[in-house]
Nucleic acid binder design. Structure first.
Length: 920
DNA sequence: ACATCCCGCCATGAA
DNA sequence: TTCATGGCGGGATGT
C-alpha cells in the first residue's frame, strides 16, 4: 500500500455516521481533538526561539500544528512534503552556520515519543473501517515520520499492549484503532483485580510511608512479598483473543517487553483510586514482579525510563496525563488516568440488556472474570486471551515455531489472500478456517452457500447478561477485529445453513441412521456445560458504538463457531478416510462412556485422552484429520500440539491451584461441592474462547472437504473448540453434519454422560429451563428426534418444537416446580417472528438478571443454548442422556421435567409471555 | 540536581 | 550471516 492509499484509508470514516468523503477529514482524525489537550498537558513546549522550522510542515511541531488544524491538505501529500523537508534541510545546511543549523534541528522534545506517537496516530482513524485493510508498514511509517524504526517499535509495542494494533507479519502491523480498547481495558482491569494490583500498590505506598525505619521497611517488604499472590508474577501479556502475538523473537522476551510493562502500567491505573499512579510505585511494582528483592538502582532507573516511554505513548492516546503528587519532600512524578472508565464487573452494567448498549464491555468482563481460570492454564500458543504462565513460555515458543511452520506468519509477508483480514486471523484455527472458506468459495461458488454471520451479538449479549457465571466468559463480543473477515453487511442466509450436531458417541449410530446424509464424525468434547444463550438478536441492532461498530461483534461466538465449523470442515474433509479412525475413536469413546462412572471419569478421561492422542498421531500420519476435543483440548495432529496438550494437562494442577488462590471457585458457590473433579474439569473450559475462532468460522457453516485437514489442527485448546457456542463440551461428542436443508442451523451439543455439568450462575443454581430454539420444522425434527429418539434427554423431559411455526420455534422445558429462568424468543428472521421476537426480546430484557442459560438439574446440568436471533448460529445444548445423568449424579434425584410446548405462533407467544412473566 | 527520555548499541532468534 | 525486534542504559536535554 502506498502512502497515498494509506492516508486515504486513514481518513476513511469508520463510523457509519460518517459517510461522505468530505467529512472524512473533519471527523477522521479523532485523535486530533486529543492532540491539543495532550499537548497542553506536557508535550507542548513553549515557542522556541528557533521557530524557523515552524513554517516547515514537516518538523514535528509544525506537523502537530498542522494536524491540529485538521484541515491541512498537506497531510495528504506526505511525500511531497518530505521532499520539501529534505530540500529545506539541505538548504539550511548549506546556508546556516553549524550552530545555526543545529538550532534548526528539532529539539529533543520535538522528537519525543509522545509527539511521534501523535503523528503516528494521525495517520490512522480512531475506528478504522473494518472492511478496509489498515495495515501499518513499519518501514513506511518510520520513513514518513522520519524516525528510526526503533522508535516505531516502541510505539507499536504500547499500542499492541492495548490491542490497537497487532503484528501480522514481518514489518507489518494491523491497525485496529480503538475498537478493542475498551475491551482490552476491561480485561486488563480484571486481570489487575485478580492479581491484587491494588493491594500491591497500597503495600508499596505503605512501605514508602515507613521507609525511614529500616526494620519496618524490611518487614513491609516481606509483607508485600508474602501478600502478593505468587501468581501475580505470572502475569504475562494479556492477550485478547484474536490479537495474539505473532512476533518472531518477541515471545522470548515477552515477559519483559514493553508491551507487558505497558499493560501492567495501565492495570495500575485501572484498579487504583484515584486513578493516579506515581512512577515510583509503578516501577516498584513492575520490578517487584520480576524480583521484589533486587530492587537495585539501575534496574529501577531502567524501569522508570521505560515507564516514561510508555507514558508518552499512553499520553498521546489521551489515556493518561502527567501530574505530580505532592509530598512533604517535594513532588513525585505521576500519571493520572484520563481514559475511559472501565468496569470490570459484568453486573455493573445492567444496560447490557439493551440491544443498543455497549454489550461488548460485559462479555469482556465476563471473560475476564474467569480469565484467571484460563490464565496460565493453557499454553495459549498466544492465541488465547490469557496470560501465560512463565512455565509455559517454552512451550509457547515451540508452539509459536510450529505456528510459523504452519503458516508463514509473522516473519513472512502476509499472504494476499489473508491480507484483508489481518487481524482477523489471530490464530491458526481462524486462519485455517479462512483458508478453508476461501477454498470453498473458489471451488464451489454456490450462490446459496451458507454464510453465517457472526452470530455475535446474540450470544455475546447473552453472555453479557450472565452475571458472573460459569458461562464461557471468553465468549465475548469482539469488536471489530474480525470485521474485515466478515463484514457486517454479510447477508444472513440461513436457509442453506448446514448444521452440526454434536452427539455423544453412544448416540451416533442412531443419529446417522436418522438421515443417511448425516455425516457423523467423532469429536471429543470437553466438558459441556455452559450454555449460551443468545438472548437477543440483533446482531445488527446492537452495536455499541465503541465496540461493535462495523465490526463483527461477537467474535467470541463467531470464533467458537469458526472452530466448530472448522472442525466440521476438517471432518468433512477427512471424509471417508477418517471413518476408520472415527470408528475407532467412537469405540473408545463408548467404552469410556459406558464404563466410566462419574468418579472414574477423570481418570478415564485422561486415559481416553491418551488414547485419543495416540489416535490423533495416527491420523496425522495419514493426513487425515479427526478433530478430537478432549477436555478442553482439541487434539491436534502435530506432535507439537500433542505435547502442548500434555503440558497443559500437567499444568492443570497448578492451574487449579491458582484458581483456588484467586477465589475463582467462589464464583461457583452453587456448584455442588461433591464433585470437585468435575468442576475442575469443566470450569476452566468455559473460559476464554478466542474470539478469533468464533469470528472466523462463525461466518460459515459450509465446509468443503478440501484442505481442511489443517482445520483439525485447530487450537489445541479445547475450550476454543467446542465453542460453537462458546460452550465447552464435556468429553467426547460426535459431530453430525446435517445437510444444508435445515433452514436454521442447529447445533446440538450433547454432553457425554461421563461428566456431570452443573451450571452455576452467580453462585446460584438456577431454575431449570430448557429452551430450544429457534427450531424450524426441519430443525424441530432433528431436535425431537435427537431428544426423544436418541435418548439424549431424560425420559421425563419433553421438548417440542413448533411445527406450526415455520419461522419461529421455541421449546421450553421447565423443570417442574422450578422457576423459569429465561425464555428466549426465537426468530429466524421471518415476518411472523418479528413481532414475537420483539416481544420476547423485550421480555428478555426485563429478565436481564435472570437470563441464565444454564439449566441445572439437581446434580446435573442440562444446558441448552438457545439462540434467539436471526443469527444463524444456533447452538443447543441438549441434556445428557438418562444414563449419563445417572452416571454423573448418582445421588441426585432424577430431574423431573415437564415439557412445555407451543403449538402456534400466537400460542407460542402467549405461552412465552406467560412463562416469562409468571415463571421468571 | 533532578526529571525526562532520546538514541542507538547490541542481544536474540528466525530465516 | 542477515534481518527484524526490542531490551537496555548512557547520557543529553529540559525544568
Amino acid at each position: 500500500m502506498n502512502t497515498e492509499d494509506k492516508e486515504n484509508q486513514s481518513f476513511e470514516p469508520h463510523e457509519s455516521t460518517v459517510k461522505t468523503p468530505l467529512k472524512q477529514r473533519a471527523t477522521s482524525n479523532l485523535f486530533l481533538a486529543e492532540i491539543q489537550p495532550a499537548a497542553a498537558c506536557h508535550l507542548m513546549t513553549p515557542p522556541k526561539p528557533n521557530e524557523i522550522s515552524a513554517a516547515d510542515p514537516w518538523t514535528p511541531t509544525a506537523n502537530l500544528k498542522m494536524l491540529i488544524s485538521a484541515a491541512s491538505p498537506e497531510i495528504r501529500n506526505r511525500e511531497q512534503e518530505k521532499k520539501l523537508l529534505h530540500s529545506r534541510n539541505e538548504t539550511l545546511e548549506d546556508h546556516l552556520s553549524g550552530d545555526e543549523y543545529e538550532k534548526s534541528q528539532p529539539s529533543r522534545k520535538e522528537k519525543s515519543l509522545g509527539l511521534l506517537c501523535h503523528k503516528f496516530l494521525a495517520h490512522y482513524p480512531h475506528y478504522p473501517n473494518s472492511s478496509k485493510n489498515s495495515e501499518i508498514c513499519l518501514d513506511e511509517v518510520a520513513e514518513e515520520l522520519n524516525v528510526e524504526r526503533r522508535r516505531i517499535y516502541d510505539i507499536m509495542n504500547v499500542l499492541e499492549s492495548l490491542h490497537m494494533v497487532n503484528r501480522v507479519a514481518k514489518n507489518r502491523y494491523a491497525w485496529h484503532g480503538c475498537h478493542n480498547l475498551k475491551r482490552t481495558l476491561q480485561v486488563l482491569k480484571k486481570v489487575a483485580e485478580e492479581n491484587k494490583y491494588m493491594q500491591q500498590m497500597q503495600l508499596i505506598k505503605k512501605m514508602e510511608g515507613i521507609e525511614e525505619p529500616e526494620e519496618n521497611n524490611q518487614r513491609t517488604e516481606l509483607m508485600v512479598k508474602h501478600d502478593i499472590p505468587s501468581n501475580h508474577m505470572d502475569i504475562s501479556f494479556v492477550e485478547l483473543p484474536g490479537m495474539e502475538f505473532r512476533g518472531a523473537s518477541v515471545n522470548s522476551r515477552k515477559d519483559k517487553s514493553l508491551r507487558v510493562m505497558s499493560q501492567k502500567f495501565v492495570m495500575l491505573f485501572l484498579v487504583s483510586t484515584p486513578q493516579v499512579v506515581s512512577l515510583e510505585v509503578a516501577a516498584k511494582i513492575l520490578i517487584g514482579e520480576d524480583n521484589v528483592e533486587n530492587l537495585d538502582k539501575s534496574k529501577f532507573k531502567t524501569k522508570i525510563r521505560r515507564l516514561y516511554d510508555i507514558a508518552n505513548v499512553l499520553g498521546s492516546l489521551d489515556l493518561i496525563k502527567k501530574v505530580h503528587i505532592k509530598e512533604e519532600k517535594g513532588r513525585k512524578p505521576a500519571f493520572e488516568w484520563t481514559g475511559p472508565s472501565v468496569f470490570s464487573d459484568v453486573q455493573d452494567a445492567p444496560s447490557v440488556l439493551s440491544p443498543t448498549t455497549i454489550v461488548p464491555a460485559h462479555p469482556v468482563e465476563q471473560k475476564s472474570s474467569k480469565e484467571h481460570c484460563s490464565k496460565n492454564l493453557f499454553p495459549t500458543k498466544s492465541k488465547q486471551g490469557f496470560t501465560r504462565h512463565p512455565s509455559l513460555i517454552k512451550l509457547t515458543k515451540s508452539i509459536q515455531s510450529d505456528h510459523r511452520k504452519i503458516r508463514s506468519a509473522p516473519s513472512s509477508p502476509i499472504k494476499k489472500s489473508t491480507s484483508n483480514i489481518p487481524s482477523s486471523f489471530p490464530n491458526k484455527m481462524a486462519q485455517l478456517a479462512a483458508i478453508c472458506r476461501q477454498q470453498l468459495d473458489e471451488q464451489s461458488r454456490e450462490p446459496n452457500k451458507t454464510t453465517l454471520e457472526l452470530a455475535s451479538s446474540p450470544l455475546a449479549r447473552t453472555l453479557a447478561l450472565q452475571p458472573k457465571s460459569c458461562l464461557p466468559s471468553h465468549v465475548e463480543v469482539l469488536p471489530l477485529i474480525h470485521s474485515s473477515a466478515s463484514p457486517p453487511t454479510l447477508p444472513h442466509n440461513h436457509s442453506n445453513a448446514s448444521c452440526t450436531v454434536y452427539v455423544h458417541p453412544s448416540q451416533m449410530q442412531i443419529a446417522s441412521a436418522y438421515h443417511p446424509s448425516f455425516i457423523v464424525q467423532p469429536v471429543a468434547c470437553p466438558n459441556v456445560i455452559g450454555m449460551k444463550h443468545p438472548a437477543e438478536t440483533g446482531s445488527k441492532a446492537a452495536p455499541v458504538k465503541m465496540f461493535t461498530e462495523g465490526d463483527g461483534i461477537n467474535s467470541g461466538e463467531s470464533e467458537a463457531h469458526a472452530k466448530e465449523e472448522s472442525i466440521g470442515a476438517a471432518k468433512k474433509q477427512e471424509g471417508s478416510k477418517n471413518d476408520c479412525a472415527s470408528k475407532k475413536f467412537l469405540k473408545k469413546c463408548k467404552l469410556v462412556h459406558e464404563y466410566c462412572p462419574v468418579k472414574k471419569c477423570k481418570h478415564e478421561e485422561q486415559k481416553l485422552q491418551d488414547m485419543l492422542l495416540g489416535e490423533s498421531v495416527k491420523n496425522s500420519k495419514t493426513q487425515s484429520c479427526t478433530a478430537l476435543h478432549l477436555d478442553q483440548e482439541v487434539l491436534t495432529l502435530s506432535a507439537e500440539e500433542q505435547n502442548q496438550f500434555k503440558l497443559k494437562n500437567r499444568s492443570r494442577e497448578h492451574e487449579s491451584k491458582q484458581r483456588k488462590q484467586r477465589n475463582l471457585l467462589g464464583d461457583d458457590g452453587a456448584f455442588p461441592a461433591e464433585d470437585p473433579p468435575v468442576y475442575k474439569a469443566w470450569f476452566p473450559s468455559s473460559y476464554l474462547i478466542p474470539l478469533t475462532n468464533c469470528t472466523q468460522s462463525g461466518n460459515e457453516t459450509t465446509v468443503s472437504n478440501k484442505g481442511k485437514a489443517k482445520m483439525s489442527l485447530a487450537e489445541p485448546k479445547s475450550h476454543n473448540s467446542l465453542t460453537a457456542g462458546g460452550i465447552p463440551v464435556t468429553s467426547e461428542c460426535t459431530a453430525i453434519n446435517f445437510p444444508v436443508f435445515h433452514i436454521t442451523p442447529l447445533n446440538l451439543l450433547l454432553p457425554p454422560s461421563s461428566v456431570p455439568t452443573i451450571p452455576v450462575v452467580n453462585n446460584t443454581v438456577l431454575p431449570s429451563v430448557i429452551q430450544a430454539n429457534p427450531i424450524q420444522t426441519p430443525s424441530s425434527s432433528v431436535l425431537n428426534f435427537t431428544l426423544q429418539h436418541l435418548g439424549l434427554m431424560p425420559a421425563t423431559m419433553q421438548m417440542s418444537a413448533h411445527p406450526g411455526l415455520a419461522d419461529v420455534c421455541q421449546s421450553t422445558l421447565i423443570h417442574q416446580g422450578a422457576e423459569c429462568v429465561g425464555s428466549v424468543p426465537s426468530s429466524v428472521g421471518l415476518k411472523q417472528g418479528k413481532t414475537l421476537q420483539n416481544a420476547l426480546l423485550e421480555r428478555n430484557h426485563e429478565l436481564s438478571g435472570k437470563q441464565v442459560l444454564k439449566v441445572p438439574f439437581p446434580q446435573t446440568t442440562v444446558s441448552i443454548t438457545c439462540s434467539v436471533s436471526k443469527e444463524v448460529n444456533e447452538t443447543v445444548f441438549l441434556p445428557p442422556s438418562q444414563p449419563a445423568i445417572a452416571c454423573s449424579c448418582s445421588s441426585a434425584p432424577e430431574p423431573n421435567v415437564v415439557g412445555s410446548s407451543h403449538g402456534t405462533s400466537s400460542e407460542l407467544q402467549r405461552e412465552f409471555d406467560a412463562s416469562t412473566e409468571d415463571e421468571f
